[in-house]
Amino acid sequence: MNLTVNGKPSTVDGAESLNVTELLSALKVAQAEYVTVELNGEVLEREAFDATTVKDGDAVEFLY
């Protein structure tokens, strides 16, 4: 899956889609429990991480 992460191209191997929690784990995001996630310009509530799917071509920003 090809994404733009914090403005840079990134690839997650072996996945066509992941939820936000899985993406944080796959990318080994440090202190993931404290990060705010913006997906395609929309800031996500932490409670929505498990239910929100990240797909090929999406833009993700991790805000600390």
Score class of each variant (00 low, 15 high):
A59K: 14
A59I: 15
L27G: 01
L18F: 07
G14E: 06
S10N: 09
E61G: 05
P9T: 08
A48L: 12
T4S: 07
V43K: 12
F49I: 02
V5T: 02
A30I: 11
S17M: 11
L3I: 15
A48S: 10
A32F: 10
A59D: 09
A15P: 09
V60E: 02
T21W: 13
S10V: 15
A51I: 14
A51Y: 14
L39N: 01
V20N: 00
L27N: 01
E42F: 10
M1D: 03
T4H: 07
N19A: 05
T52M: 06
T52S: 05
A30S: 11
V12K: 02
N40E: 01
V60P: 04
E16L: 13
S17C: 11
T21I: 07
L3Y: 02
T4K: 08
L3V: 08
A51F: 14
N19L: 07
V35G: 02
L39M: 03
T11D: 04
N40T: 01
E42W: 07
N19C: 08
K55D: 03
L27W: 02
V12W: 07
V12N: 02
A32E: 08
E47R: 09
T52E: 03
L24H: 01
N40L: 01
N2I: 10
T52D: 00
S25M: 12
E33K: 09
E33L: 08
K28T: 05
S25I: 15
S17K: 09
D56T: 10
T53A: 09
V37G: 01
E38Y: 15
E45Y: 09
N2Y: 10
G7L: 03
S25H: 12
N6E: 03
A30K: 11
P9F: 09
L27E: 00
M1K: 04
L3N: 01
A48N: 12
G41I: 03
K8R: 11
V20Q: 00
V5W: 03
E33V: 06
T11V: 13
A48E: 10
A15E: 07
V5Y: 00
A15D: 06
L44N: 00
L39E: 00
K55F: 09
D58S: 04
T21K: 08
L27V: 04
T4G: 04
E47S: 13
A26E: 07
G14F: 13
V43F: 08
R46L: 06
N6W: 00
V43G: 05
L24Q: 00
V60R: 00
L18Q: 02
V60F: 09
V54H: 01
L23H: 01
Q31D: 14
E22V: 05
N2F: 11
V43M: 10
G14T: 09
P9M: 10
Q31T: 07
L3Q: 03
S10C: 15
F49M: 04
S25T: 12
V5L: 07
A51N: 13
N2S: 11
F62P: 06
S17A: 09
N19K: 06
K28A: 09
G41S: 04
F49E: 00
S10Q: 15
D56M: 06
G57N: 05
G41L: 03
V60S: 02
V35S: 03
F62N: 02
L39D: 00
N40R: 01
T4Y: 08
T4W: 10
L23S: 00
Y34I: 12
L44I: 15
M1G: 03
N19I: 04
K55N: 08
P9Q: 09
E33P: 08
K55C: 07
L27K: 00
N2A: 09
N6L: 03
A15F: 14
E33Y: 07
P9S: 09
V35D: 04
G7K: 05
K8T: 09
T21A: 08
E42V: 15
V43S: 06
D13Y: 15
E61A: 08
V54Q: 00
G7Y: 03
N40W: 02
L23I: 04
A59L: 10
L63H: 15
N6Y: 00
V54E: 00
L23A: 01
A51Q: 13
L3G: 02
A15V: 15
V54L: 10
R46K: 07
D50T: 08
D13Q: 14
F49R: 03
K28G: 14
V43P: 08
A15I: 12
V12E: 02
T11R: 15
A32W: 13
E22F: 04
G57K: 05
L24Y: 00
D58N: 01
E47F: 08
V12H: 05
E47T: 11
G41C: 06
A32Y: 10
G7C: 08
T21Q: 06
V37T: 01
L3P: 02
L63Y: 15
G41W: 04
V54A: 02
E47K: 10
A59V: 15
V37W: 00
V35W: 07
V20H: 03
G14L: 08
V29F: 06
F62H: 03
Q31A: 12
L24S: 00
L63G: 13
E33D: 11
V5N: 01
V37M: 04
A59P: 01
K28S: 09
G57A: 04
K8I: 13
T4D: 04
A48I: 07
D13F: 15
V54C: 04
A48D: 11
D56H: 07
Q31P: 08
V29L: 07
N40S: 00
V12R: 03
L63T: 14
A48C: 13
G7I: 05
Y64A: 09
D56W: 06
G41N: 04
T53Q: 12
E45T: 10
L27H: 03
E22M: 09
V60L: 12
P9H: 10
L39R: 00
G14S: 09
L44W: 01
F62R: 01
T53R: 13
L27P: 00
K55W: 06
Q31I: 10
V20I: 13
A48M: 12
M1E: 02
D50W: 07
G41E: 01
T21M: 07
S10K: 14
L23T: 01
L23V: 04
N6P: 02
L44V: 15
L44Y: 04
V37P: 00
S10R: 15
A30L: 10
M1I: 12
L63A: 12
L39S: 01
V43Q: 08
P9I: 09
V60M: 05
S10G: 07
L44P: 00
L63R: 13
V60H: 02
N19W: 04
T4R: 09
S25Y: 11
T11M: 10
E61C: 13
R46H: 07
L18C: 10
N40D: 01
T4C: 14
E38P: 00
R46Q: 07
M1H: 04
V60W: 03
T21N: 11
Y34C: 15
V20S: 01
S17G: 08
N6I: 01
E33H: 10
E38L: 15
M1N: 02
E45G: 10
S25F: 11
D13A: 14
